[in-house]
Design a protein around this nucleic acid. Structure first.
Lengths: 343, 343
DNA sequence: ATGAAAGCGCTAACAG
DNA sequence: CTGTTAGCGCTTTCAT
């Protein structure tokens, strides 16, 4: 019932070593033998057991990745891009959604190690402050598994990042240019948050002063829910603002909803800027002005960086200094900020 | 440099068999020994190599799944649910997005087999008409890999499905009840498509006759793009319709966009019904009336069905007749159809 | 060019 | 209770 290399060898009248050779396209096999074996493989529909092979080769052609959740378009899109890139290079990607739960994340990482993945991508990690004495991080190091991260986690890890300082600065300056002075910031769970930094940067560049009461941060996720609730609260607090800069588009949609319920119009009463540029951003009414993330480029860079690191192996001196590749963000101006100057 | 069970055994002063026993929580180990070994495992931070274990146990605790694309909320949500369910049962899920490309799908399946997955889920398969003499299907059978599918593929495969006949019937009858008679159908790539069947069923139930010129099908995907283009075409063709029933919400959003460009209002000029109930459906303006799919329940059922099949193993007689579990759809009435009767 | 044999890291009888 | 041994399915020397 079990079809192995042995069976193929027997049927083809050669030794298992020879079958292995043709399986791996090794040299030194008489072409007639190779032909014969190939035919048998095909006839038997033989698929070699990769796990057995991997055990010897000490590789698994598998990459593990942790992300907070898949049901956010940013992540699902990124995963899709990565999966394709890895696949094209012979790797499989397995991803774990952590729901921003540290235990879950650690459990995933542990499982990745047990499966001897060739590399790990930290999408958005909680293991953070992943300094030397962190349990999980130590494990990864001990097993010598190459890692890369999306956005910087610590100085020992290579990473690919979006320049959110620039992105947020652009977004907020757009608002300032339109005359807005009371700009609220609905932030995300990231800490430190370069978008918040960008927010402050835009104010500085324009010699304006930030109203701290208009800054709201999330301690967990930054979803539609959070945008909605925070906006309601902002209004109930009696805060005065003419515009809101949001951590991401999902949050922005929540803001829309809250504003609508409170009878405030966009962009007439409140201008909104999102972040990500998800598919619905351009479709929504009013169409969302937002900062576009170059997900495809980021994904490609992430995959390439990790694969390069893996395939460099311990060939060269272990210690290539960690790289960090940064991508620019692009402001997409649509309708959610209006076009007239706020007076 | 390499940490194996051997090293642990040595350090703990026992044999590898004993280490293996405590690793697997087997009986007959003196608790003091067990304690000692456990400490060493922990001290060394030892993670057993699952691939080695799996090779012996003839299982991989891995499930493969093919889906058309991840960047559609329906799929990303479903994958998220499945991933969680499998994880809770000790399985990892690896998914491949096929972009509806048959070659890609087959390549994924082949790769799944090489990795000796314990089961395969056909999300949306092209392999279908997967009757006996299909290459890939034959392979799966030969290797005895349990499979389940989402929506029926053929009579030999267990499946979990949404009752789209009922869902579409409900959606279209809603339109009919509101007085619509000229209802367009923007279908998807599924064939045969039970939503189209539901569409026709609703007409039959109400003694109405379908205007075939208002039925448009997609040959590839059913995205925003498709909804947009098809609607433009429908209008350019001079077709007369007062409402549109869409294959899914993404399509519906495309329809909105096209309608808007052509200066037609929703729901005043055209009523729209979507399918899926994605997060944005309720947020959109006008809020989308749509048919909700019970994704979580479907995902759970899918996982349970597959796991049960796997763990039943060849214990009982190989041939348990394929099951098929069906879930009802729920019509969610919002604003995109208005509330007044069409006269 | 090919085969025999020694493992990869682990589990599972089988002894003791 | 614990150790010894024989593999799992494959790759890789090392002979021939």
């Amino acid at each position: 019932m079990k079809l192995t290399i042995k069976e193929v060898a027997q049927q083809a009248g050669v030794s298992i070593a020879t079958v292995s050779r043709v399986l791996n396209n090794k040299d030194r096999v008489k072409s007639s033998t190779r032909q014969k074996v190939k035919e048998m493989i095909h006839k038997l529909n033989f698929q070699p057991d990769l796990n057995a092979r991997n055990m010897i080769k000490k590789e698994s052609k598998t990459i593990g990745m942790v992300i907070p959740e898949l049901s956010n378009e940013y992540w699902s899109h990124l995963v899709d891009v990565l999966q394709e890139n890895f696949w094209d290079n012979g790797y499989m990607l397995i991803v774990g959604s952590t729901d921003r739960n540290l235990d879950k994340e650690q459990a995933f990482i542990k499982s990745f190690i047990e499966r001897r993945v060739d590399g790990i991508i930290f999408g958005s990690s909680l293991t953070p402050r992943a300094d030397t004495d962190n349990e999980t991080f130590k494990l990864i190091k001990q097993y010598g598994i190459p890692i890369v991260s999306l956005d910087p986690k610590n100085r020992e890890m290579s990473c690919v990042l979006g320049d959110h300082l620039q992105g947020a600065t652009d977004g907020v300056e757009h608002l300032i240019r339109l005359g807005h002075r009371s700009i609220a910031f609905i932030g995300g769970p990231t800490a430190p948050d370069s978008r918040e930094l960008g927010f402050r940067n835009a104010f500085m560049l324009n010699n304006l002063i930030v109203d701290e009461s208009l800054i709201r941060r999330s301690d967990s996720s930054s979803t539609f829910q959070f945008g909605y609730q925070t906006t309601i609260q902002l209004i109930n607090d009696g805060a005065e603002f003419t515009s809101i800069f949001c951590y991401n588009d999902a949050t922005a949609f929540g803001v829309f909803k809250a504003l609508e319920e409170k009878g405030m119009r966009v962009p007439e009463d409140v201008a909104i800027v999102g972040y990500d540029d998800v598919q619905m951003a351009g479709l929504f009414k009013p169409a969302l002005t937002t900062v576009r993330q170059p997900i495809i480029e980021v994904g490609q860079a992430l995959a390439k960086l990790l694969i390069d690191t893996i395939e460099m192996g311990s060939t060269s001196i272990q210690k290539v200094p960690p790289k960090s590749i940064s991508f620019k963000m692009q402001l997409i101006v649509r309708d959610s900020c209006g076009s007239q100057l706020k007076s």
